[in-house]
């Protein structure tokens, strides 16, 4: 049985101009200890997918219109909030893109780490303190006992992200969702944090969902990859298969339009056009207006995700044509 099984998840937002689906029919499975990368551009629905799983979207304006999120055998979408609160932390923990906004500026980092531990475990005050120091040490905060009394603004961006990880991992979650954990950081600090996340993953053996718009982060971390475009999952594959044999024209376009250090082309293969805005998504395949392979049929109906090779699915009617 999978650790997490997401099926046909559709989340709709109530906006001034009516309802708009942020994500539509998103499905994927995650095994114990596996790292799933979710990659997509801005607005593709990565964060909404994560927040729907965590039950953290404000309702309204959000509404889960369909689907299930089965974690360790129970559908989280049917759990009352009190039960969900016991899942967040020891079951599923999350770190966010912007570490400053997710840490509380008026509490010390020590209080914030200890608070998380206390919320889920009955330990003596001294044991809670010791565990908090241990967590800060594990995430690479120098002199952790002395830094317990620091406030978030006294830390650098990289250190704040380390503290976020300490909080997320304090309850030894089975699954860690990291939503753009390094995007706000400088490259040398990004590399440190990615290394740290992967080291901690090996140590704690948890499963992970790594959300990013950066194919490089996917190449560095993921076992399997889900590619999203305009609110839909359009391809899913093992990471090497995805890089070597991308099936969806959007995935191939994305892989070839991003320059990498080891490639030497004089011109980048650009994808024409721009992302469709949420209210103005085209009928049929949402990538059709930008797709070099599109034919009239592509615009007629939304292509379903079809398995084209073992463990490799894609939503495009032109594959193999």
């Amino acid at each position: 049985m999978s650790l997490l099984s997401v099926a046909n998840l559709t989340t709709i937002f109530q906006t001034g101009s009516g309802e708009a689906a942020a994500i539509e029919n998103v499905s994927f499975d995650l095994q114990e200890g596996e790292i799933l990368g979710i990659v997509g551009e801005s607005g593709s629905g990565k964060s909404v997918t994560a927040l729907t799983i965590m039950g953290l979207l404000p309702t309204p304006p959000a509404r889960v219109a369909s689907g299930s999120v089965v974690f360790q055998g129970q559908d989280l979408l049917r759990l009352p909030e009190a039960a969900m609160r016991r899942i967040r932390g020891p079951g599923i923990a999350m770190v966010f893109q912007e570490p400053m906004t997710s840490l509380n500026p008026v509490f010390t980092i020590g209080e914030q780490v200890m608070e998380t531990i206390r919320a889920h475990e009955r330990l003596s005050q001294r044991a809670v303190f010791a565990r908090a120091v241990e967590m800060l040490e594990k995430v690479g905060i120098p002199s952790p006992a002395a830094r317990m009394t620091d406030y978030p603004h006294q830390l650098s961006g990289g250190q704040r992200q380390r503290v976020m990880l300490a909080i997320a991992l304090a309850c030894r979650p089975k699954l860690l969702i990291a939503d753009e954990p390094t995007t706000a950081l400088d490259v040398t600090i990004q590399a440190q944090i990615l290394d740290l996340i992967l080291d901690l993953r090996s140590e704690f053996g948890m499963a992970m969902i790594v959300i990013t718009h950066n194919m490089g982060v996917i190449a560095e971390t993921a076992d399997r990859v889900l590619v999203m475009y305009a609110g839909q999952a359009i391809e899913e594959a093992q990471v090497t298969d995805l890089f070597d044999h991308p099936l969806h024209p959007y995935t191939s376009g994305l892989l070839s339009c991003v320059p990498t250090l080891d490639q030497r082309e004089d011109r980048l293969a650009a994808i024409p056009g721009t992302l469709p805005e949420p209210g103005r998504r085209p009928p049929g395949c949402r990538f059709a207006p930008r797709c070099p392979r599109a034919i009239a049929e592509c615009r007629a109906a939304v292509p379903g995700l079809i398995m084209h090779a073992p463990a490799h699915t894609a939503a495009c009617i032109r594959i193999g044509a």
Binding site: G158, A191, Q192, D195, V217, A219, E220, D262
Partner: peptide
């Protein structure tokens, strides 16, 4: 520090990574 362009060239744990801020 630049992430690899392909999963077969992962650079995790490379010694030249920098410590500190």
């Amino acid at each position: 520090s630049v992430p690899a362009g392909h999963p077969s060239r992962r650079r995790r744990g490379e010694t030249r990574r920098l410590a500190g801020d």
